[in-house]
Design a protein around this nucleic acid. Sequence first.
DNA 1: GTCTATACCACGATAGAC
DNA 2: GTCTATCGTGGTATAGAC
Lengths: 188, 188
Amino acid sequence: MTPAPAARDKRGDLTNAAQALFYEQGFGATTLANVAERAGVPLGNVYYYFKTKDSLVEAILMERRAAFDAMVAQWDAIQKPKARLEAFLDMNHSGREIVAEHGCPVGGLSMELGKEHSILGDKAAAVLARYLEWTTAQFRAMGRDDADDLGLRLMSSLQGAMLMANSFRQPELITREVNRARAWLNDL
Amino acid sequence: MTPAPAARDKRGDLTNAAQALFYEQGFGATTLANVAERAGVPLGNVYYYFKTKDSLVEAILMERRAAFDAMVAQWDAIQKPKARLEAFLDMNHSGREIVAEHGCPVGGLSMELGKEHSILGDKAAAVLARYLEWTTAQFRAMGRDDADDLGLRLMSSLQGAMLMANSFRQPELITREVNRARAWLNDL
DNA sequence: GTCTATACCACGATAGAC
DNA sequence: GTCTATCGTGGTATAGAC
């Protein structure tokens, strides 16, 4: 048997590079040459894996959805719904530095792609909707019949805090809002 | 005396066109040819008024600041600070349809320009900061010494609502948040 | 001040050898 | 599957006649 020669996952390298660059610079400002370079792949070869730039961002949206689903799988092992939401808040808080630097990865893409490019914008919004559905489900599990309202309020306040934190480059604004949300959650 | 031949303000036409297009399509996605066409000005002539595309967006940022200052001048004629904030909320509510379609004009520019283009991003953030300063000043006039916190909370919740409303194309999300803010304001 | 023509470059995407 | 070379388009910005 020949020893397996550490097969390289070029497709994965490309989505990783693209994910980071679209997040840091935006979709429009990032060129496929940027992505290829960061992934260590020649430009021409990108097109073997992704026929267009659009299909690349679609792949990233799907990965983000999958990543969130994986987190959800962990959180759903927690007994109490309130504790699940607290875990969700913890995650939001732990990302505060990066978010203050580059904004919310999902919110940012949704905003950019939503302008003019309506097909891709809808796909980004669908990822955001998934976050919203999950938070709403937790409030419902808590027995609240205003769960829709509460879920929206939580997501909306976090999005607002992330936008302000990003505009002013102040991660503490996220800390503040997360703490407020934690207290609010306990008083419900 | 020759009758004044309805002098045309080309510079103004250009900033108006650019304002609308940057808002609808984003800064990066809008070409100077788009702007020129919408303004009814030949492409080459744009450069007589604005040396670069960047200087055009800077001019727009200044106009937005001036427009806000003009609103503020009206609101400041209102006696009670709480009523001034209510007027501010009314304005936010009245724009809900357009905001659901294209997002917050200031927040959107701040987000887009903040990515990579840090100089312009700061200028956009400065406009947002001005909104924040004004709301904070109203809470201070109400005698609250947590005015900083309250001002931030108001702006942040509005930004969050606008982002969600835009992602999902639902103006009612803004109505909801504005109503909540109104009630919150009364209970303070 | 105005406008046409165009330089110049960067990008997305393809062709085609290996 | 991989990679180089390149096409075609469309963008910012300029030159220079009027």
